[in-house]
């Protein structure tokens, strides 16, 4: 069971949250100019590291707000909680 520190409410059990998957996937600025391969990369290809992953979570059964975390996919340790829109750290992922 993960204990996740919601930036707005505090630490709560995983069961209150929904995982939104990989963070920082930016919607293409000029969709008309994308090749099929670029679309595939945006829509389907995923960073799936054995190690630190930046991902989005939503406190669904709480404040219902989204935020980002950095989590180790082997130990499940949560290393950082930060706001949507805040950039990822250079190190790590």
């Amino acid at each position: 069971m993960l204990r996740i520190e919601c930036p707005h409410c505090g630490a709560r059990d995983e069961a209150e949250f929904s995982c939104g998957g990989e963070a920082h996937i930016a919607r293409p600025k000029e969709p008309d100019k994308l090749s099929d391969a670029e679309w595939a990369d945006y829509l389907y290809m995923r960073t799936n590291p054995k190690g630190i992953l930046a991902e989005r979570w939503c406190h669904t059964f709480g404040c219902r707000r989204w935020f980002n975390i950095e989590r180790d996919t082997v130990s499940h340790e949560i290393l950082r909680v930060y706001a949507m829109g805040e950039p990822r750290r250079e190190s790590g992922t």
Binding site: M1, L2, E14, A15, S18, C19, G21, N48, K50, L53, E55, R71, T73, V74, S75, H76
Partner: peptide, 13 residues
């Protein structure tokens, strides 16, 4: 389990 993992274990919920 909805989150990514390589830990060969999941969560109790």
């Amino acid at each position: 389990d909805k989150f990514n993992s390589y830990a060969q274990r999941g969560s109790p919920p």
